[in-house]
């Protein structure tokens, strides 16, 4: 039984600011921020119900604990107008959400299926203008989340000057080194606080603590997000904080809004030391998603068909 299922409420907005960006301190620290115990939900459908339309949704990178079962549930729920942020890159999850019509804006350093080839639904949507593209670069996305981690409104980052990425980012500012140390011009990246972040993990305990191994970007995402939804392969009784070895690789439960078990929850992507990526399945997706018709057939078979089989 779920302990508590809240109906999704739209995230708070700062005074006239872009949702999820400025006034992040007030938002994370506001009464709406969930300081209660982690909610243990029954399944991915209940987790997906926590993702409101229009949310700024952070996705982990392809190699790191991507909650594909939850992504499929979000598609089934028909969530609209998402602003997805890839941290810092993504592939299958972003491409499927875009192809399924869940996405209004893509903010990314790259969207690619890696060795399986290009992310075709992403490419088609950007070329046709059906999604808004906000190009970034990997360290800028990390930096924007780190600014939120530290509770500061922006953070400087080297490089970038002279790129067209900067030219099209009117939210990034260039200043002369304010310390007068002769560093020259430097870019300021505004903080980003995702409304919702989603991750998968091999293991959680009963206190909402989640094992993330050395994938520390998951901690950064969690620290910066207002709501964190987690799927796990397994829930164990013993606390992950009981041993220093597991504690060092653990995300504490006070960052975790809600959690549900989802075995094989990263499939067809891999989960380190648990299962390898299903390269045949990923290649099949890459092939079928080249056309909209092929993508829709894939979605019927693997997303909507899966639900029917479960019911």
């Amino acid at each position: 039984m779920p302990l508590c299922v809240e109906s999704p409420s739209p995230p708070e907005r700062g005074r006239g600011q872009v949702r999820g960006r400025r006034f992040f301190r007030a938002q994370i620290g506001s009464p709406s921020y969930n300081r209660r115990m982690t909610n243990y939900l029954n399944d991915v459908e209940e987790l997906a119900a926590q993702v409101p339309d229009g949310a700024l949704l952070a996705l982990p990178p392809e190699y790191s604990f991507v909650p594909m079962a939850l992504v499929r549930a979000i598609i089934r729920r028909g969530v609209k107008d998402l602003h997805i942020l890839t941290v810092p890159i993504n592939g299958l999850a972003a491409d499927m959400l875009i192809g399924a019509g869940c996405v209004k804006t893509v903010e990314c350093a790259a969207v690619s299926l890696g060795e399986a080839g290009p992310a075709s639904r992403f490419g088609a949507a950007v070329e046709s203008g059906s999604v808004k593209i906000i190009d970034s670069t990997c360290p800028a996305i990390h930096t924007a989340l780190q600014a939120t981690e530290k509770g500061v409104p922006f953070m400087p980052l080297g490089g970038i000057i002279g790129s067209d990425i900067l030219r099209y980012r009117d939210d990034w500012k260039v200043v002369d080194d304010p310390m007068g140390e002769g560093h020259g011009r430097i870019v300021l990246i505004p903080a980003i606080s995702p409304d919702v972040a989603i991750i998968h993990s091999p293991l959680a305990d009963r206190d909402g603590n989640v094992w993330i191994g050395r994938r520390r970007e998951l901690a950064t995402i969690a620290h910066a997000a207002k709501t964190l939804l987690v799927t796990v392969e397994k829930i164990q009784d013993e606390s992950l904080l009981a041993s220093e070895a597991t504690a060092a690789a653990t995300l504490p439960g006070f960052y975790v809004t809600a959690l549900a078990q989802a075995e094989m929850g990263a499939k067809p992507l891999g989960l380190v030391e648990h299962y390898a990526p299903d390269h045949d399945e990923i290649a099949a997706y890459a092939r079928e998603s080249r056309t909209e018709e092929g993508f829709n057939a894939y979605l019927q078979r693997t997303v909507f068909g899966a639900q029917e089989a479960a019911e």
Binding site: V126, E127, C138, I160, Y168
Partner: peptide, 27 residues
């Protein structure tokens, strides 16, 4: 150019994206 060919943002052919190039190339 790792982004695409043609006029940005609705390029003729979109590629994956810039990855970390805008930083690594400087450092």
């Amino acid at each position: 150019n790792l982004v695409g060919t043609g006029e940005y943002p609705t390029v003729d052919k979109r590629f994956s994206g810039s990855f970390g190039s805008a930083f690594m190339y400087f450092t």
